[in-house]
């Protein structure tokens, strides 16, 4: 088990950097995780992160990228519901990277 330091506290993560305990999550943790990837979170990032947290709350899974893209398009409009936009925000893969910042497990089916 590894850990990250956030606000003087040690937060447990797995070997790929995903939170071990989903309940540990807060916005500061997301920002610290993003910083480690040289990513500064702006409102567009937060929109997707918050969407993922809501999706998880409702369905108890992290969506596959295809499903995420479609659902974002439905909720936030076609200019955001496409992989180009989402990959620009999250170059390591929208589902993988955004799920990590959102404190969720890796999407089911993601290798």
């Amino acid at each position: 088990m590894s850990a990250i330091e956030v606000g003087g506290k040690s937060i447990e993560v797995d070997e790929e950097g995903y939170l071990t305990n989903r309940d540990d999550w807060n916005e500061e943790i997301a920002a610290v995780m993003a910083k480690e990837d040289d990513c500064d979170l702006d409102s567009n990032h937060w929109e997707v992160i918050n969407f993922l947290r809501e999706y998880y709350e409702e369905y108890q899974i992290a969506p596959a990228v295809r499903v995420l893209t479609k659902a974002i398009g439905k909720k936030l409009g076609a200019d955001k519901g496409n992989s180009k936009y989402l990959y620009e925000l999250f170059p390591y893969g929208p589902a993988k990277q955004a799920c990590k910042y959102a404190g969720l497990p890796k999407p089911t089916g993601c290798v």
């Binding site: 409702e58 369905y59 108890q60 899974i61 969506p63 596959a64 499903v67 479609k70 659902a71």
Partner: peptide
């Protein structure tokens, strides 16, 4: 245990 029943409602999106 983990309640996975809400996930059946996600199937439509898949």
């Amino acid at each position: 245990m983990k309640n996975f029943s809400p996930t059946y409602r996600a199937l439509e999106g898949y």
